[in-house]
Design a protein around this nucleic acid. Structure first.
Lengths: 334, 334
DNA sequence: ACATAAAATGTAAGCGCTTACATTTATAAC
DNA sequence: GTTATAAATGTAAGCGCTTACATTTTATGT
């Protein structure tokens, strides 16, 4: 692989000049620029980005930490991010944290030791304190789907209270009054918020929240199944079940069907996230849209703007959920 | 950020010694190793991986090129790969090629200029010739889901002929004789192979392949829908539809239902890939398992073994598809 | 105790770039 | 044609490590 040195020799100029045309910064006369580019193509020169990084103290790479690389939620997010960065010649290093505190911390360490210029973090298990401490460090980062008051300007979040409200309201508007709820793990802020919104809607309809009809899941499919079973076997009855995300809704649907319930006739179900496969389940699942792809893009813009001083569209930090009506919620149940 | 120089001063040794304990290569006495590690923790020293890479000519990073970052197929693949590498302290740089020749080439260039030590490529549009030329270069790479005879030892593939055969055989065994087929784009080897297997099974049952019952799709959901419409409106009839992947099967199912067909009573459907959501569609889709997660892991092992000289389990290059029976194929149609 | 080999440590030259600063060359103003 | 000023180019010192080679220390055998 040719180096800048060989290029400079071939072109008959100094190293600095070659570097200048590469970073087309400074004043280089058209003539020499021409000479240099010709030499570069002749040698098939490709700059060594490692050397560039070391010399310029900028790795042109940003770390992306998600909980899982698979799963319907993170794909669109990564996609939005990668697209935005590649346009700018930045690259993304990915790591998975698996919603586990130790692994999330390790991943962050790893990304930092890799000299990432910035970090995009979707972390769940790590503490606020750790992140606040991290914010004192020299690697800037932005948080997706997590709000910490002290770090508010770098938190890109969805209004989950509103989302929870919207979901419940839709079900209420269809005439349901006995509504079960499978929440996410309530130590997570987003799970709490969704439930809060749910309760708000109930209150608006002068319905009191029945603790019997609440099951705390963990956002994973199996807990949707377990939750449904628990609720189904309890003494209370319900005509609708709202789940705090689509995966749990899917698990609940499968189990409900195993219990010989007709969907949506005997049970209306509502999800949350609008993960792509929700329209393929049966019946197609009504849900709340989580614009994760755009939020990923926004996180990328945050980094582009705050780390690389690029001009970006104005940064937006709070996103709005949206009701998606399909066929899993039946009107006028008896 | 502390550098190796400060560590060496604090520990009262030379740079080289510090470097030695970091790479715990050479002979370092326990006493000095002790001194050095103490100095490192005292300073909170973290090696600068960029500098390491430049000096050692090894970036400890491997490039991963997939068609899309989202979608049900690539997630498990990336997941298997990331896990394998992180255990070894290697990191993965991702790029998306979008099944487009130019973008795939750009992505490869990008990854190479990023000094990746090795590449894992899932490419579709790029030519064999390009890859063969690339193999002469200095960056080693392994191919997933692509077979090129000249590069056979670095092709990690599924036996798609067998998969196509298995799918058709299952449908035939259930008594179907009029079987439609929505293929992938036939310029792609895997699409061809699946169809070849399909025809083999037909032949085994002494059935001739009816070109009228073939529709060429593009592996995307919409083409499943379009394919079904086309087939449904043609003069021929069929009791079963085999699709070359799950997404197209899903598209076909949705459209079939829109056409008021009862599934699976009036139409049996078979998919391919066993993407995770297939068990959630209705009726749960019978399909062919594509062990993409393991294949990803194997690709990682290939790199670990061929690039980093690590010991790995024996490398396997050909993977076997497997029939997954769910409820979308009905027995004894009339 | 001495020679010799082995182990431990140090020295210094890069890796391929960027960039502050110095120098040369072109341009403008008179 | 000078001189002042700006534009173009060159020089060389790093960036933070690794590593070949040189040197010193320690262990071993007699």
């Amino acid at each position: 692989m040719a180096t800048i040195y060989e290029v400079s020799k071939l072109a008959g100029v100094s190293l600095a000049t070659v570097s200048r045309v590469m970073n087309n910064n400074a004043n280089v006369s058209d003539a020499t620029r021409e000479k240099v580019t010709r030499a570069m193509t002749e040698l098939g020169y490709r700059p060594n980005s490692i050397a560039q990084s070391l010399a310029s103290n900028c790795s042109n790479s940003v770390g992306l930490l998600v909980s899982e690389l698979h799963g319907p939620f993170y794909g669109p997010m990564m996609s939005g991010i990668e697209t935005a960065f590649r346009k700018q010649g930045k690259h993304v290093i990915i790591a998975a944290g698996h919603s586990n505190e130790e692994r999330e911390q390790q991943a962050i360490e790893f990304l930092i030791s890799r000299n990432c210029d910035g970090l995009i973090l979707h972390v769940e298990a790590i503490s606020d304190d750790y992140l606040i401490a991290l914010s004192k460090g020299k690697t800037p980062f932005v948080l997706i789907n997590r709000y910490i008051a002290e770090l508010s300007s770098r938190c890109i979040i969805l209004d989950n209270v509103k989302g929870g409200y919207l979901a419940a309201k839709h079900v209420l508007e269809q005439g349901h009054t006995d509504i079960a709820y499978i929440s996410g793990p309530l130590w997570k802020k987003d799970a709490q918020d969704r439930l809060t919104g749910h309760k708000q809607a109930l209150a608006e309809y002068n319905l009191s929240f029945n603790e019997q009809l609440l099951y705390q899941g963990d956002f994973m499919e199996d807990s949707g199944a377990a939750g449904f079973k628990h609720l189904h076997n309890s003494e209370t009855t319900f005509t609708a079940l709202i789940c705090a995300n689509d995966e749990m809704a899917t698990g609940a649907m499968a189990t409900a069907r195993e219990c010989k319930l007709k969907l949506p006739e005997q049970l209306s179900i509502m999800g949350y996230d609008n993960v792509f496969f929700t329209r393929h389940v049966y019946p197609p699942l009504s849900t709340i849209n989580y614009p994760i792809n755009e939020m990923g893009r926004m996180a990328a813009d945050w980094v582009l703007s705050n780390v690389y001083q690029k001009n970006t569209p104005p940064l937006q930090t709070l996103f709005e959920p949206e009701l998606i009506i399909r066929q899993s919620v039946l009107a006028n149940p008896q």
